[in-house]
Simulated scan of single mutants.
Amino acid sequence: MLELTGERVIPKLMKPTNGMLLKHIARYYFAIPYARGRVLDIACGAGYGSQMIAKACKKEVSHVVGVDIDEDTIQYAKKTYNHPRITFKTGDAIDPHLPQKLGRFDTIFSFETIEHLTDDAQFLNNIFDMLSPGGILVLSTPFGRGRGKECAEPFHVHQYTVKEFEGLFTAYKTVDIYYQRGVTFEPPRKGIKYPLGVAVCTK
């Protein structure tokens, strides 16, 4: 059984009113309308989000691949959130060979991942290479002091500024940026400081 530590989200071990849980679930609900074809849920954690996608998008999604670096987490996902259209696999998001191992996807979801990675450039390259032409990426991350700068979160390598975050997706044909406050998402409004951004990108 997984333990509830750090930033790990395990719905079965958390109160339904837990703020972190609600925010994470809200991100999947936000992203579900974009899901189609073969879907990658990178850094899927316990697997609840992958199952949400598979259940909610029966007509739009052919298969969901949930990937996480932790083998115990993947074994938990297989036992707890098993679904005929889901395959859970162990994998490193910054492995340069990941695109060859996993193949192409029509949709890629990446929630609260990039801020944990030392080689964010390799991660972004992997994502781009795994996304099919015309495919959609939905990626979220919290804002902070900037790339490479220390932050208050012990599990984060860094946290981008808003400007840095918006500049990550220049390789994509279209990019729409949204901002999350609590469980709600909206375009930017002047004078409001948002804790987290979500990019919806089309290759």
Rank of each mutant, 00 (worst) to 15 (best):
F169L: 07
G191C: 00
F105L: 04
A152L: 13
M20N: 13
L40S: 06
S110N: 10
M1H: 10
P11W: 04
V200P: 00
A31Y: 04
V198C: 06
T87S: 15
M14K: 03
G47L: 07
A26N: 06
A26F: 06
Y178M: 08
L139K: 07
V138G: 03
A54V: 00
H158W: 01
C201A: 13
L22I: 13
G148N: 05
K78N: 08
G91P: 00
G182L: 14
G66C: 08
C44D: 11
M1E: 11
A26T: 07
Y28H: 05
G45D: 09
T90E: 15
L137Q: 02
K79P: 04
R38A: 02
V157I: 03
Y81H: 10
H116S: 05
H116D: 05
R181V: 15
L22K: 15
V200Y: 05
F143A: 03
G91C: 10
G148K: 06
P99I: 07
E112N: 11
Y76K: 03
H156N: 01
G148T: 02
Y194A: 01
R189C: 04
K101N: 08
V138P: 02
F111Y: 14
H63E: 09
G146H: 02
G148L: 04
K173G: 12
E71M: 13
D106W: 01
R27V: 12
T113L: 09
Y28K: 07
F185I: 03
L131D: 05
K12V: 01
L139G: 09
Q180C: 06
G182R: 11
H158A: 05
Y34H: 14
G148I: 03
R36Y: 05
F105H: 04
F165Y: 07
P187D: 01
G182K: 12
Q122D: 11
I136Q: 06
E150P: 00
L102R: 06
V39A: 00
V157F: 12
I32R: 06
K149D: 01
A77Q: 00
D119G: 07
M52E: 03
H63M: 06
E150W: 01
L139T: 12
K173V: 14
M130E: 04
N125L: 14
I32F: 01
D129S: 15
T17K: 12
G103L: 05
R85K: 13
P11F: 03
G144K: 00
S50P: 03
P142F: 06
K163M: 10
T118R: 14
A199E: 08
D176W: 10
C44L: 09
